[in-house]
Amino acid sequence: MTEPRVRVLLADDEALIRAGIRAVLSADPSIEVVAEAADGHEAVELALRHRPDVALLDIRMPRLDGLQAAEQLRTAAPDTALVMLTTFSEDAYIVRALDSGVSGFLLKSGDPRELIAGVRAVAGGAAFLSPDVARRVLTHLGTGRLSRATEARARLAPLTDREREVVARVGAGHSNAEIAAQLHVVEGTVKAHVSSVLARLALRNRVQLAVLAHEAGLVTG
């Protein structure tokens, strides 16, 4: 039985960037770019019309930037996973976006395989942080990085070994189904672990949990 395609909306104000990303995604037969937008306002309109599985949003766009578009779509199209496209020069935007409902961050200049993996991951309900983006976020958090690492480890200390295993895999960008297969448990158990950890640590979403996993050193590579 053929798996359904992942339907993607691509939004970037640079036509050349859109063409490049479309070419990468089109190389994977399981991914279909169903619409393209040149600004944030158009991205919202097209997302509401096409209801894609994933919306890839450039952080900086005219009319509405990617973060503003994501805020609107989080409410208007809650079934669409939101992924921010960024560059190395946009650290402050990335830090702002950590408090939003996005599912992942990808570098425009990153490995094409990473782009495909990220789209697949968020379509499957996972969070996905490009390793380079994760490193930039941790660096941007400043000179207190060591203390933040200590704080992150302290926050995770009360978790059980199994919960920490789940957190590490969330940080690595795996979906609940993938984590369940890796740990030889049912998917519902993983979902329960993730929900419990988010509530206990007062985190809003899987992306914030993924960042915490990176800060605590649970994610390598």
Rank of each mutant, 00 (worst) to 15 (best):
M1L: 14
T2L: 05
E3T: 09
E3R: 14
V6H: 04
R7I: 04
V8G: 07
L9D: 01
L9W: 00
L9G: 03
A11T: 01
E14H: 15
I21F: 14
V24G: 02
A27Y: 03
D28C: 06
P29V: 08
S30R: 10
A35L: 05
A35F: 08
A35K: 05
E36L: 02
E36R: 01
A37Y: 04
D39H: 13
G40V: 10
V44H: 10
E45R: 07
E45I: 03
R49V: 05
H50R: 15
D53Y: 04
L57K: 03
I59T: 07
R60G: 03
R63V: 14
R63I: 08
L64C: 03
Q68L: 11
A70E: 01
L73D: 07
L73F: 02
A76S: 07
T80M: 02
L82T: 02
V83E: 12
T86I: 03
T87W: 04
T87R: 07
T87L: 06
F88R: 08
S89M: 00
L98S: 09
S100L: 15
G101N: 06
V102W: 03
V102C: 13
L106K: 09
L107R: 14
L107S: 14
S109G: 11
S109D: 15
R113E: 15
I116S: 12
A121D: 04
A123G: 10
G125F: 12
P131V: 08
P131T: 10
P131Q: 13
D132G: 08
V133R: 13
A134Q: 09
R136W: 03
L138F: 05
R145F: 01
L146I: 11
A149E: 15
A154K: 10
A154N: 12
A157Y: 13
P158G: 13
D161M: 08
V167R: 14
R169K: 10
G171A: 09
G171K: 06
G171R: 06
A172M: 11
G173K: 12
G173S: 14
H174D: 12
S175N: 10
H184V: 07
E187H: 10
G188E: 13
A192F: 01
H193K: 07
S195W: 01
S196L: 12
A199I: 00
R204D: 15
N205C: 05
V207G: 02
V207W: 02
Q208I: 09
L209V: 01
A210V: 08
V211S: 11
L212S: 08
L212H: 06
L212P: 06
A213R: 03
G217V: 09
T220P: 00
